[in-house]
Nucleic acid binder design. Structure first.
Lengths: 206, 206, 206, 206
DNA sequence: TATGAATGAGGGTTCATTCAT
DNA sequence: TATGAATGAACCCTCATTCAT
């Protein structure tokens, strides 16, 4: 049983690599089998079908993410710190490991509706936690008057999209990434924010 | 000839819809033909192959984006305004029209390497323009000391990811979207930025 | 269109032969294609799937049978003659052409429930016609007091089962077959029926 | 060893059920194993292969049938009684227990040629016994001038085909079935046989 | 310009069977 | 005796693409 689980994990590992490299649709069950040095029919001993492999991979990532985000939610710390922690977490999971995000982003259409629903439910809980931080902070006057739902998505989007360009092996350390996301999201890029903000608002009002 | 161009465009229109709905791999050439009320063989009169349809669609989007970004670059206006204009443009093209971004995001793996390269070249020029705004502003001391390349990607990423959740038919107007992106990118979400920023830096230094 | 129909028919012809020879399950789509000198995928141009081929074949047989049986039903002739005609028809269709009955008998489990239902409906009408002959005759006192439904099935069964042993190329002419079925069904094999019948009834009463 | 035989029998029991329900081809070795609460590999300890299971089942039915028919053959009773006994036997074995006939009818193509030959040999002996009854009776003038081989098949066919429609759980008792087969085969359905027969002969002579 | 017909490659999946344990 | 794991062959079917018309 333990052995079987190990093999399942091994299959998921190679499958993850291939799915990221080529995309789910362009990865054949035979590709996965070869990369895992097995016969293609052998895969069906471990997984019901191809989609089940993808589902297993995605679910594992999501479960870990959600568990860690829940843990942040119940920590005894200021909200601002929770936001920092959430940014750190999301960057670690989806930003600094492009593999994971690539999977999530690419493969929605490849899951069965049922599986996709399950995943969505967890994704929703995950983002609702962050939104709740922002909502509370807005009520406390700690943050600007911005739609918390939109802000949550904007934050996640900014971080996640790193998978499109960020190379963990490259020059830029993941710490720098994390810092940048934090700074942009909390304080923006401009130096004289106050003025620029007002200016901007005037602009938008036109 | 004009007629032929019209037909090509019509094909691209239905193909775009299908690619976005189902993904490129899951859209068959017959699906496109049927949706366009033609015979699947007929498509080959207008396009060399299936990939060419995708390429055409993506290139058109990219060409328009790039042209408009170039136009911003040469405008005679303060850099800050150019940033605003770039955000507006990107939001309009990729944020407020989820179709376009969906296409870009999903279909890189489906293009031939050559076509993908061509697209990348234009994408690169497009993002380099924005990066040049940021670089210059940093040199002027107008913006924080952040890696301009990373910031560019963060900005684009934040905006683009809207395709995953933004519904143009929904309650939130695209204006609100644009404003939020601008405010977050320029000034962040926190109210007492200055303090929080320092705090944050202390935290990161630990 | 006429050409396409011809090809469909040709495919059905070879498929019929193979289905009878090997059974539906043991006949691969490639077998059919090869026997029809085409590529296996070509079949899908004419039929939705393998089952559709079988369904088409069976439906055609059934439609012809039913049409002819209906025609007997409305003929202006004594009931006894109608029974004779029905026996002739059934023998011709299912007895003397083993192919047809073999198909019907073997392949119920291979049809989709929907298709099987459609076939059943026609089969039912077909047998109900014969049953109605028998019922009326019983009411007239023309036939023994036997359950007409059972008799109908017994008659059909006797005739159909010929496919298991009858060889149209062999010594026995189909006329002899027809005569035998008629004589057995109407008058039985024994010479002194009356007595034997009574005897038999006594036996069964024990 | 006795234990092994018990297990074999148990396997045959579940296999019979499944073969009848779904057909031999559509029943997988794993289906059988699961239904018998064992591992599919385990089956190979008891049977050489899947076909061997079917062969064993069919052979057992055939052996029993044949033994009982032989026993009728050597009984000291009038031929007419022997015919009655044969009809009773065949109805009991193949008519009233649809399972058995279904198996025989459906699975000829699934046996190896050798096994099929063995079965045929016994089937032939079985039917030859009945044919010998008829032949002798004809020589005695006890039955009409009909081809005894054909009559045998007609009789068996009539009875066997009951598996297609007869439901042992339904209203009609198996006694009624037996009676009907006997009455039809011996005396036919018509009341005024003599006349109708002549009439019929005239008709056929046309 | 457009279509009907055909093809070849490949895809996911099933399954009887084997073998080491 | 029994099982977990693996394999190879085959199967149905899809699809991009081509070609004669």
């Amino acid at each position: 049983m333990a052995k079987s689980a190990k093999k399942k994990e091994a299959i998921c590992r190679v499958a993850t690599r291939l799915f990221v490299e080529r995309g789910f649709e362009k990865t054949s069950i035979r590709d996965i089998a070869e990369a895992g040095k097995m016969n293609s029919s052998g895969l069906y001993y471990y997984f019901e079908d191809k989609e089940a492999i993808l589902y297993t991979i995605l679910m594992e990532i999501m479960d870990e993410s959600l568990a860690r985000m829940r843990e942040i939610a119940i920590r005894d710390m200021p909200l601002k710190e929770k936001i920092y922690a959430a940014i750190d977490l999301h960057t670690e999971i989806y930003g600094a490991d492009p593999v994971r995000m690539a999977l999530i982003a690419y493969n929605q259409k490849s899951l069965s509706p049922e599986h996709w629903d399950e995943l969505r439910k967890k994704q929703r809980e995950y983002s609702l936690i962050v939104r709740s931080f922002l909502t509370e902070m807005r009520n406390n006057g700690e943050i600007e008057d911005l739609n918390p739902t939109l802000c949550t998505f904007a934050l996640f989007g900014m971080i996640q999209s790193a998978y499109l360009w960020y190379d963990p092996q490259g020059e830029v350390k993941s710490d720098e990434l994390r810092e940048m996301f934090t700074r942009i999201f909390t304080g923006g890029v401009l130096v004289e924010e106050r003025n620029s903000r007002e200016e901007n608002e005037r602009r938008l009002a036109r």
